[in-house]
Design a protein around this nucleic acid. Structure first.
Length: 492
RNA sequence: CGGGAUGUAGCGUAGCCCGGUUAUCGCGCCUGGUUUGGGACCAGGAGGUCGCAAGUUCGAAUCUUGCCAUCCCGACCA
């Protein structure tokens, strides 16, 4: 990994600190690692959310909402899931405070108000949802049940990192129930495809679809499918997961249905989720030294118009012309802002919108008005050109598409350059140390070897690609026979 | 929870080793003016529990002890 890239990665955190979140509330250690999403960042999340939501609905899903609190007895019902999350659960034990008799103006937890049963703040909602599904499913006619929830969850991680691992985060979690194993597996891969399509087409981040190894699997799942993206510093990021849960949760929560032959069986389940971590992926995949780069399709602002003028007369002319342009852009569904704030000078605004990653900036001054042009600057390449005001809106619509494609192509080229193969241990170690990125290599299939490789190089198996090519080979560490390559990388 | 570093105005910092006027500088903020095609300039101004507590001392941002917090590295993880 080059030093330049490492430095750049450090800069990202500064930018998202500045632009989008704070990681803590001052002087409140107990909420360290939570995030405050500022309006600009939230607008980005809303765009991502709306698009995903549309895609979920297009694939037959509906939204619902389930409680934040999970009674401990429910939470522990699916043993593997419960154990997997036990170490990072926030737990509610009391329901009341009272005035501190020894300290005026202060409050203490009322010892009289201890809950009979502790409530777990959901780290994920399988338990409470499956407990609910039990009452909703009796017959094959109730299936499939295809529900998604937009919610916040809490995972009390020992160490947090902005966007990538905050204590509380926003996400969506889909939870589906099916009559057959095949149908559930189909749902699992279908939703993985939805995620891949969203991340690639809207976020312009190329991903690799794959299956996790047993040790990286979601607690309680039979199989975990994932999309893995590569960040500019050579580290991999798990951008979304889709789990085939088998009948584990149905058995734990006793969710049975009668099939057409009146035979009772447990339902087959899936769950799938993406989170505000995607914002982190976006930042780390595209940003450069001038700041963020937003893919037009989900950018909170797609075009910003900055008037350049001296005195009120010139400004009136520019105002009028800009209003026309804005009207045309809005008619094409383009998100545009006219920044005539007189408190900031043009140069300051240029830098500011570059930092925020607005895809296209238009500067309009008297000089341009006279020539019937506008100065159009694109964020991705930083190119500037004079463009005729006639047909400007259509030009910009095309330009936004081109920028979207260019950002994706650039990220794809980077990913492909950083997807290498290693056939020997020395090669493997050298790649991990020097270049980072994905390394495709043979592995003997045992968790012990996987663990050993992680210990020695910090690289983990990100996934086994879907439709992976089968080929004879030898494990890079142990030399044992292997029938396919798996993808290794250092990961966030 | 282990290892390392740090804590001075909204942000970034100097001063600390070697204790001594009114705690330094930049950005930002406020007022007035001139400006406005790549983060403007001039003048004036406001803003401080030096992380908290105790100790040493005539005197502590500076030395000692304890505590708290933050960041980085591990373990854990979407």
């Amino acid at each position: 990994m080059s030093k330049e890239l490492t430095k750049r990665a450090d800069d990202y955190s500064q930018w998202y600190n500045e632009l989008v979140v704070k990681s803590q509330l001052a002087d409140h250690s107990a909420v360290r690692g939570c995030m405050v999403i500022k309006p600009y960042g939230y607008a980005l999340w809303e765009n991502m959310r709306d698009q995903l939501d549309k895609m979920f609905k297009d694939t037959g899903h509906v939204n619902a909402y389930f409680p934040l609190f999970v009674p401990k007895s429910l939470f522990e019902a699916e043993e593997t899931n419960a154990e997997g999350f036990a170490k990072e659960c926030a737990v509610v034990t009391h329901y009341r405070l009272k005035a501190d008799p020894n300290n005026k103006g202060k409050l203490i937890v009322d010892p009289e108000a201890k809950l009979e049963e502790e409530l777990v703040v959901r780290p994920t909602s399988e338990a409470i949802i499956w407990n609910t599904y039990k009452g909703w499913i009796q017959s094959y006619r109730d299936l499939p049940l295809l529900i998604n929830q937009w919610a916040n969850v809490v995972r009390w991680e020992m160490r947090t990192r902005l966007f990538l691992r905050t204590a509380e985060f926003l996400w969506q979690e889909g939870h589906t129930a099916h009559a057959t194993k095949e149908e559930a597996i189909e749902e699992t891969t279908k939703m993985l495809d939805v995620y891949a399509e969203f991340v690639e087409e809207y976020m312009a981040v190329p991903v690799i679809k794959g299956v996790k190894t047993a040790s990286e699997r979601f607690a309680g799942a039979e199989d975990t499918y994932c999309i893995e993206a590569l960040m500019q510093d050579g580290k991999a990021l798990q951008a979304g997961t889709s789990h085939f849960l088998g009948q584990n949760f149905a058995k734990a929560f006793d969710v049975k249905f009668s099939d057409k032959n009146n035979k009772l069986d447990y339902v087959w389940a899936t769950s799938w989720g993406v989170s505000t971590r995607l914002i982190g992926a976006l930042i780390m995949a595209h940003s450069d030294d001038q700041g963020l780069i937003m893919p037009p399709k989900i950018a909170p602002l797609q075009v910003v118009i900055i008037p350049i003028y001296k005195g009120e007369e010139g400004k009136a002319l520019i105002d009028a012309k800009s209003a026309e342009i804005i009207r045309d852009l809005k008619a094409l569904g383009i998100r545009v802002k006219y920044d005539d704030n007189d408190n900031a000078r043009p140069g300051w605004k240029f830098a500011e919108y570059e930092l925020k990653g607005v895809p296209v900036r238009i500067a309009m001054g008297m000089r341009d008005m006279e020539n019937n042009v506008a100065e159009v600057a694109r964020r991705d390449t930083k190119e500037k050109s004079g463009v005729s005001l006639d047909g400007l809106a259509d030009y910009l619509k095309n330009l936004l598409d081109e920028i979207q494609q260019n950002i994706y192509n650039r990220a794809l080229a980077f990913r492909n350059e950083n997807l290498r193969t290693a056939d020997t241990w020395d090669e493997f170690v050298k790649l991990q140390e020097e270049t980072g990125g994905f390394v495709s290599a043979h592995w003997d299939g045992t968790p012990e070897t996987e663990e050993k490789i992680k210990e020695l190089t910090k690289a983990t198996i990100r996934c086994i690609s879907i439709n992976n090519k089968q080929e004879e080979g030898k494990c890079i560490l142990t030399g044992s026979p292997s029938k396919e390559r798996v993808l290794f990388a250092k990961a966030y």
